[in-house]
Simulated scan of single mutants.
Amino acid sequence: MIKLDLIEFADYIRPKEIVDEILKQNPNIKIPIPLSEIAKNIGIVDIDYRPLGNLEGALVANEYKTEGVILINNSKEAGTKERQRFTLGHEIGHFMIPRHGHKMSCSISDMSTTNKDEKIEIEANDFASKILMPDQLFCKGSLFDNPSIENIKKLAVIYGVSFAACSNKYITNHHEPLAMVFYKNKKFRYFKKSKDFPFYFSFECKKGTQLPLDSLANNLNDFSDENISLDYTDASVWISKTNGFLLPDEIIEEVYIQKNGYSVVLLKFEEEIEEIENY
C-alpha cells in the first residue's frame, strides 16, 4: 500500500528527485508500480478513462495543485493498456512537478517529443519513465545485465510498459555499448544508444532512409509477427566512423519483427571495445 508524506516533496523540482522520494517513502513498492495508488495519495480524486480524440491525456487541477482529475484516452486508436499507463505516469508528472501548469492537454506529439523547447513535456515523459521503471529496480539483475530482445520483452511485461518505452530505458541506461534502430518497412525511423556506444552509423540517420543494404535487418524477409532473428554482420556495414575506438570485425544484429511493418534491430558486440592509442 502506497503512503506519501507530501511535505517531504516541497523542495523537489526535478523528476528524478520526486521519484526518488516516492521510492524512499515506499521501499517495498510493488512491480508493476501502482500508479493509481500514487495518484490517489497526491490528490488526484479521479482517473477518467474515455475517448479524447487527438489527446492522449489531460490534467485538470486546482490552481495550487492540491486536488485534480486525470483524463486518459482509452479509445481503440489510443493503443494498448501499456500506453495508457505511460500517459497516466506523464500526467502524474505534470501534477507533481511544481513548475508545470494545473491544466494540461497532451497530444501524441507531446508524448513523444524530443524538442528541447518543449521542456515541460520532456520532463513529464522523463517522470513517467522513471516512475514506471525506477532505476534502482530496473537497472539490475540478469534480465538487464544480459542484453537481448527477449530480455527487454520480459522486462516490459514485468513493469507493465510497452516494448518501445522499455527499450528506450534499457538502451540509454545500459553499461554496455548498445544501439537500437527503430524502423518501418526497412526505412529508418529513429535510434537510441547507450552512453558507451562510441561509434557513428554508416547511413544518414534521417527518417525514411534505407537501412544498410548488407544488413540482416534489410535482407530479412520473414515478416511473421513476434519473429526474432540473430546474425553476425561485418561491423562496417553499420559503422563508418569509430571516434577514437577500435571497431571490432563483427557486430551482432538481433532483429525483432513487430506488427504492420514496424521492427527494431538491437546492435551489440561480442568483443570488448578498445580505445585507439594516442588518438
Rank of each mutant, 00 (worst) to 15 (best):
E270Y: 10
K268A: 05
E63A: 13
S236W: 06
L216H: 07
R189Y: 04
Y262R: 13
Y200V: 08
E67S: 15
Q84W: 05
P198H: 01
I276C: 12
E82K: 06
N146Y: 11
L143T: 00
T80G: 08
E121P: 01
A39H: 01
Y232M: 12
R99T: 10
I152D: 09
T172E: 14
Y200C: 12
K140C: 13
P177K: 04
W238R: 07
N146L: 07
M96E: 04
D46Y: 05
L155R: 03
P198C: 00
N41F: 06
F223T: 14
C139V: 07
L246M: 12
E8T: 15
P51N: 11
I108Y: 10
I152V: 15
L216I: 10
S112T: 14
L230F: 08
V45G: 04
I29C: 07
I31S: 07
L88W: 07
Y64S: 15
K130P: 01
L216P: 02
T209K: 14
K153D: 12
L35Y: 02
K187P: 03
V255S: 03
I149E: 08
I18W: 04
Y190W: 12
G79Q: 06
I92V: 01
E56L: 05
L35D: 11
E176K: 15
N221D: 08
I2Y: 00
Q136A: 13
V255F: 03
I120H: 08
W238C: 10
V60Q: 10
K81L: 12
S162L: 05
V265A: 01
T209G: 09
P248K: 04
V69C: 11
E271P: 05
S229T: 14
M180V: 15
C166S: 08
I2D: 00
